[in-house]
C-alpha cells in the first residue's frame, strides 16, 4: 500500500517539477512588469527542441548544447521584448497580455515550420536504471529536474537579493515610477526580465524533454499549468510557484491514483479555486501587497 502511495507521490513530483519551472518563469516577468507572459510555454518548447537540434542533430557536446540552447532561448526572449513589448510603450496590461498570446502563436508557427509536428526526445542526462525507494521507482531524470528546479530557486534568490540588477528589478516590481525616480533604467530591467525568464523556461524544457518528449505545440498546456502554479502559490513569489507547481502535480497524481484518472485535472482546478476563494492572493501572497498593484 505504501509502495503504491510512494509511486503516486513520485509521479506527482515528476509532473509538479515541470509546472514549478514554468511557474517560476512567469514570476520573473511579472515581477518586473506585472505582465503575465503567456508565451512562457513556448520558451520551454524552444528549450527542448533546440537542445535536440544541438545535441542530437548537430552532435555537439552535451555542455555546449546546453549553453547554446540557453543562449538561443535568451535571444528569443530578447527579440520578443525588443520587437513587441518595447515598441508598444503601453500601460494597458490586457493589451500586453494579448500581445504575448499572439507572439506565442507566431513562435508556434515558426517551431512547426522548423521542426514539423513530430515529437522529439534525447537520452536522459544520466544512464542507468531508475532508483528504487521502498518498492516505488523514480526515474533518474526526475531527480535531475527536481535538482535543477532547486538550483534555479537558489540562483534566482541570490540574483534578486545579492546583485544590484536583481535588487533594481525588485524595485520595479514594487513601484515603477519610484524606481525610475531613483535612477533605475526600468526599460532595461524589463528587457533583462524577458531574457532571464526565457532562459529559465528553456532550462525547464531541456530537463523535461527526456521524460515527456517535446512537440511544437506543447506550449499552451505548459503555460496554463505554470500560470495556475504561479497563481496558486501567489504571483511574484519564486517559492510560491514551486509550492504551487508541486501541489498541483501531486494533487493530480493522487486524484488519478485514488479517485479517477479522468478527473485529475478537474480536481486540481477545484482545489486551486478553493485556495483562491479562501486566500485571494494565493498561498504565499499577501492581500495587502496585492492591493498595491493594479493587477
Amino acid at each position: 500500500m505504501l509502495t503504491v502511495f510512494l509511486q503516486f507521490l513520485f509521479s506527482g513530483l515528476t509532473v509538479g517539477s515541470v509546472y514549478a519551472l514554468v511557474g517560476m518563469g512567469f514570476n520573473i516577468i511579472y515581477n518586473a512588469t506585472s505582465i503575465i507572459n503567456l508565451a512562457q510555454g513556448e520558451f520551454v518548447v524552444v528549450g527542448g527542441l533546440m537542445m535536440w537540434f544541438f545535441s542530437d542533430s548537430l552532435h555537439l557536446p552535451f555542455i555546449v548544447s546546453i549553453c547554446l540552447t540557453i543562449l538561443s532561448a535568451g535571444l528569443v526572449g530578447l527579440l520578443m521584448e525588443r520587437l513587441t513589448i518595447r515598441p508598444l510603450k503601453s500601460h494597458d496590461l490586457l493589451l500586453m497580455i494579448m500581445v504575448t498570446i499572439s507572439v506565442s502563436i507566431v513562435l508556434r508557427g515558426i517551431l512547426a515550420f522548423k521542426f514539423g509536428k513530430d515529437p522529439y526526445d534525447y537520452p536522459a542526462f544520466s544512464e542507468g536504471d531508475p532508483l528504487n525507494i521502498g518498492g516505488a521507482i523514480i526515474q533518474q531524470q526526475t531527480l535531475w529536474v527536481i535538482g535543477i528546479t532547486g538550483l534555479c530557486i537558489i540562483l534566482l534568490y541570490l540574483f534578486y537579493n545579492k546583485t544590484i540588477i536583481g535588487k533594481a528589478m525588485r524595485a520595479c516590481a514594487v513601484d515603477t515610477t519610484a524606481a525610475q525616480l531613483v535612477g533605475i533604467n526600468v526599460s532595461r530591467m524589463v528587457m533583462i526580465s524577458f531574457v532571464l525568464s526565457a532562459m529559465v523556461g528553456a532550462i525547464g524544457g531541456i530537463a523535461i524533454t527526456p521524460i515527456s518528449l517535446m512537440e511544437y505545440d506543447n506550449g499552451p498546456m505548459l503555460a496554463v499549468k505554470g500560470f495556475c502554479a504561479a497563481i496558486m502559490g501567489g504571483l511574484g513569489r519564486g517559492r510560491g510557484a514551486v509550492i504551487g507547481g508541486f501541489s498541483i502535480g501531486i494533487l493530480e497524481s493522487m486524484t488519478a491514483g485514488y479517485l479517477h484518472s479522468g478527473l485529475k485535472d478537474a480536481v486540481a482546478l477545484v482545489i486551486l479555486l478553493l485556495v483562491l476563494f479562501l486566500k485571494p492572493a494565493g498561498i504565499l501572497g499577501s492581500s495587502a501587497a496585492a492591493r498595491l498593484r493594479k493587477f
Partner: peptide, 28 residues
Amino acid sequence: VPSLRLKGHYLAVATLSFGEIINIALNE
C-alpha cells in the same frame, strides 16, 4: 459569487479554471 473577491490575474485564473472544469465534465 465566490469570484468577486478576486481581481486581475487571479480572477482570470478562476474563470479559466471554471471553463476547464466544465470542459472536463463534458468529457467525463
